[in-house]
Every structure is written in structure tokens, then in C-alpha cells.
Design a protein around this nucleic acid. Structure first.
Lengths: 333, 333
DNA sequence: TTGTAAGCGTTATCAG
DNA sequence: CTGATAACGCTTACAA
């Protein structure tokens, strides 16, 4: 079994050990009744020949690929990597392979990936991608690909979802801020085309400001540390105060750094809250206050749900992760 | 094409459009001569029936899966995610699927994953995992899985590699430091079982210190921000100075934060250089000096090399990425 | 307990 | 240009 060779097939193993295909198949699947003696004989030749079954052929024959497709917009966000890591853990534990489909925040790519997911015959899909909507999931389901969708509330025969609880907590926060700091204007950092989560929280933000009859601002930023930092260096030449709701902790870090580098005090003058925090919230100085959801747990939960769903025994199809407020040094409270 | 259904096969498409399997196959593969008329007819019924070819069956028949396996120790490191992102980009461009195999820093898991890679019939593998050695790659190759190995120098008929140039630059740095700062002891932060890169740089570090007849220290730390931070809070109660070589920027951040939180000045008293830096090196305050390699580019290069290798036309099998020194605020120079 | 043979959904090689 | 038909490597009734 040492050199370049065509892969040895089950047929050769059968011949070499003087049994039929079926018997070899039984041996490698640990099922059916096989005499201890022949089992041993077959296992020996398997080892001797270095035979490895072809997952493709198995999948084709059984109609099960033991592969899960994971659809994400990018591998480059820490919170997505965290989720991915949770998924890989459970996949390993349960014996699934993982196929990665990256959509790059483009609807076109997302559609192409959807096609790929269908043709690749995965046993299920975990989708954390705002480009894909309910229609797309239905399509997937119609090709009998059960799916767990993250951050989009939907439910069907072949689909479940994980949703995040952010709005409530954010409203409380902003409400409290408005009371405690009557003259520090709340600002929501809007990132163009950044998905449902941000949209929902933005609406919640606006609503609470309106309810409290409080002036607010929506400020457009790029989803990039460097550009946001540069923007805020400019911004802080004119404005000396603010309470900023930021999408990710990188963005909050940009605001905080721009503030301190401009001689403003955090949190006395400038405060930030980020909606999504990662371990990096602890590494910056000052540290970053924010909401938190353990994305690794989200990934694990998604896998567990998917496995249950595929077996037709997922009872609660909507699972909610509530965020928690972690007060650090970028806010007073 | 709307409801749960068994997948429609090429056979049904053939029947529905009154042609043979072969013709449908020609149509979906855009090859062979097919009349415009029949092509159109087939394409229409494909659309009408919502037919998607089975990637499994195609792979089995052609002996090509158009899938690349990626073996990594974890998805949770930023520099690995960056590489992964580079890989996904080229994969998309070239029409490959990606399978993810995560070894969790364990030799046992790594072996299990190796088996999976073999059975899953990938067209090639990209390996960035120090648990896997030359033996393992040979094994992979013997099952005709061409491989690109990252951070391990090896070369064969069916394998190429990408290596990193760190030692040289590090030696220069330490040498210079020794001359400029005769009484600030250089310390290398050793992380247990952290792979070849760290081992090699540690050796280079020790050698240059010895050559310059300079006292140095090796300090054991965990590969975790929190624990390292706690360790250094203790450390800085006794030691008030140091020039620290750190593996990743998280570790450097722990040292820097512990130093500033202990009232020491960076870089006057404490300096850090990290071997692997990510965009987070810019976000901390002070920012972190370090060596740098663009991991996204590494990922892209690996894919390009692998594709060439699979086609038997990879001329240079060893590709070296030289690191660059990026001076930021955690060092004087 | 073991073997035979019919799938699984494609591609590919021939003839026609 | 199109259609049979034999692979591809395995699983799984059904028979023996």
C-alpha cells in the first residue's frame, strides 16, 4: 500500500479474501452476520491491501452522504468562525463531514451556492446568511435538504431555525440611557446592507427613541475598522460626545480608538455598545461593552437541531438565544 | 417543482423530453454535438422538472469530485480563517467545492480526519496542521490525493508546500535589540505543543542569543489571552522590563495589557513582537509590532498550486512567503 | 452464514 | 447527431 496506485475496490478485497462483495460490505459496515473467522480474514486483507471504501459510492448506494452543508457569507468574521467551530465539534462527535459554501455577501453567489448545495447531495444544511430568504429555504427543502436557518424566523416540515434576542435588551438599554444622560445624543451606526439583525435592532432603536421623544441620529459607516476609524477621527473634530450603538466590536473599537486618539474620554464623553461581541472586546483598552451571544453554542445547537430534524424528531423548531449585556469599560453603566 | 419529492433523475428528464440519457448528459455538460432544437427541448424539461444532476453520481462516474479537502487544527484562529477565506475565493473562481476537516490539535483526530479525507474522494487537499507529518502526506498521496502542505517543507510527485520565512527576520531583530538595549532581557514566550513554526523560531532565537553571548529567558505560557494576561499581571509584580517574542498577537496583547495595567510603560519598559499578526494588531492600544504574512494570499496561492499540481503542471513545488516586519507602538524600533 | 444480482444516477464508448 | 450499454464502487434484498 505504498505507491501511487489506482484505489483498491471492494471487489479486489473480496477476491483476495475469497468471499463475495456482500460479505466484505457487511464487514466494513459492522452489520449482518459474519463468522468471526471470515470477518478476521476480510479485515486482514483490507489492512493488507490498504483498502478504504469510497464515500461517494456509499453515498450513492445508500442515498446518505453523512455530509452537512454550511452556508455563510464569509469565513472572515470572528463570530462566524466561532459558530463554525461549534459546528465542527458536533459534526466530529456525530460522524458528519462538513462542506463549506461561502456566498461573499452576494445574492448571485448565494444562488450559485444554493445550486451547489442541492447538487452536492448533503444530508442537511445550516444557513447563516442573510442573502438567503424563505423562498430559498423552501427550494432547498423541496430537494429534500432539511435545513436549520440562523437569524431568520421560519419553520416548516423540513426546516427549523435559531433566532437571536437582541431588540428587547437594546430597547431597555437605550431607554435607560435616555433617562440617565439627557444630553448625550444616542447614535446608531448604520452599516449598509448588513443584514436582518442590524435592521431589526435599528428599528427597535428608532422606536424607543420616538417613544421617549428623544432626538437621535443614524450615522452611516462602512463595515471596516480602518474606514470607520478615519471617519470618526473627522467626526470627533466637531462632536465631542455620543452614545454609539455599533454592529460589531471592531466598529466599536474604531469609535473608541478614534475618541481616545482625539483626546476624548471614554466612557465619560463617548460611550459605545456593540451588538455582537467577541473575545476581542476584552483585549482593547478600554474594553468594550456589548451584547453577547455564545456563537460556538449556536453552532452546536444548530447541528443538534439539524440531526434531529433529519430524523424527523425535532419537536421545537424555533430556538431562541437571548443576548446578555456585558458591561465593560466603554460605557458608564 | 414545489413540494417534497424524490429527486428527479436524468432518466426522467430523458423520458419526458423523448430522448436518451446520453443526450441529456450531453446537454448538461455542454459537450458533444446536440441540435439546437433538442438542446432547447431538453433544457426546457430540465427547468420544468427542476432537475439537478447528482454530484455524487457524476463524481463516481468521472472519478472527479471537484472537491478540495482543507485540513486545519481549528476554525477559531483569525489567521486560519483568513487563509480559509483565501481558499474559498479561489475555489469559487475555479468551481471547486470545499470540505472542511478539523483536527482539534489532536494526533488521534488528525488520523481520523486523514481517513475521512481518503474516503471522501477529494481531488486534492490543503493541509495546515502540524499534527500531520510527511508520512501522512505520503499516505494521502498513495491514495492519489495530491496535497499542498502549509508550513512544512516537503516535496514529492504529488505534493508541494508553502513555507514561511520567519527565522531570518527574527534573528536580525533580536540581534539588533541586543545591541541597542544591553540591559533589557529578551524573553521568548514558549507555548507548549504549538507547532513547528514556534519551535523553529524559538531555536533561531536561542541561537542568536548564544551567538551574541546574551542572557535570555524562555517563559512558558498558555495559548490563551486570559491566562497569559493573568500570568503577566503576576510577572510584572516582580519584573519591570522585558522584550517579549510572542506567538500570536492575542498573546502579545495580553502582555501589553498586563504591562500597562500594571503601570509599566510600553514600549519604554516593555516591548513585544508577535510572530503572527492579524488586523487586531491595529486595534489594541498601544498597537502591536510584529511580523506579518498575508494569510489570505497564502490560501489563494495554496489553491492555485493545488490545481496546478493536480494537472501535473506545478513547476515549483516549494513556495516561500517571506514575513515582513511591521513596526507599531509596542516596540521602540 | 454467504452469494447473486439489481439498483443508486451519472458518464463514456461505441455503433448507428 | 443520437441511442444502447457498460462502467463507476458500493448496498441490500433475496436466494441459497
Amino acid at each position: 500500500m505504498d505507491n501511487l496506485k489506482d484505489r483498491v475496490t471492494i471487489y479486489e478485497v473480496a477476491k483476495a479474501s475469497g468471499v463475495s462483495l456482500a460479505t466484505v460490505s457487511r464487514v466494513i459496515n459492522h452489520q449482518g452476520n459474519v463468522t468471526e473467522a471470515t470477518r478476521k480474514r476480510v479485515e486482514d486483507t483490507i489492512k493488507r491491501l490498504g483498502y478504504k471504501p469510497s464515500g461517494l459510492a456509499q453515498a450513492l448506494a445508500t442515498n446518505r452522504s453523512t455530509t452537512i452543508g454550511v452556508i455563510i457569507p464569509s469565513a472572515n468574521y470572528v463570530y462566524i468562525s466561532n459558530m463554525l467551530n461549534g459546528i465542527t465539534e458536533v459534526a466530529k462527535e456525530k460522524g458528519y463531514n462538513l462542506s463549506l459554501f461561502v456566498t461573499s455577501h452576494s445574492k448571485e453567489d448565494a444562488n450559485a451556492m444554493l445550486e451547489k448545495v442541492i447538487t452536492s447531495h448533503v444530508d442537511g444544511a445550516i444557513i447563516f446568511d442573510d442573502e438567503l430568504d424563505e423562498e430559498d429555504i423552501k427550494k432547498l427543502n423541496s430537494y429534500s435538504v432539511p435545513s436549520i436557518v440562523i437569524n431568520n424566523k421560519l419553520e416548516s416540515e423540513k426546516a427549523g431555525c435559531i433566532i437571536f434576542g437582541y431588540e428587547h435588551l437594546l430597547r431597555d438599554l437605550v431607554e435607560k440611557h435616555i433617562q440617565d444622560e439627557p444630553d448625550k445624543r444616542p447614535v446608531f451606526l448604520h452599516v449598509h446592507n448588513c443584514g436582518r439583525l442590524l435592521e431589526r435592532t435599528e428599528k427597535a432603536f428608532i422606536r424607543v427613541c420616538n417613544e421617549c421623544q428623544r432626538e437621535y441620529r443614524i450615522f452611516n459607516v462602512d463595515d471596516s475598522y480602518n474606514r470607520t476609524y478615519a471617519d470618526f477621527i473627522e467626526y470627533f473634530k466637531e462632536h465631542k460626545k455620543g452614545y454609539f450603538i455599533c454592529y460589531r466590536d471592531s466598529i466599536a473599537a474604531a469609535v473608541v480608538n478614534a475618541a481616545t486618539d482625539s483626546g476624548l474620554r471614554v466612557p465619560e464623553d463617548v460611550e459605545t455598545v456593540s451588538l455582537i461581541t467577541t473575545k476581542y472586546a476584552n483585549i482593547t483598552r478600554p474594553t468594550l461593552t456589548g451584547l453577547h451571544i455564545d456563537m460556538q453554542e449556536v453552532g452546536k445547537r444548530a447541528m443538534y437541531m439539524l440531526i434531529d430534524l433529519a430524523k424527523g424528531r425535532l419537536s421545537t423548531k424555533i430556538y431562541k438565544f437571548e443576548s446578555t449585556y456585558v458591561k465593560r469599560d466603554s460605557t458608564k453603566e
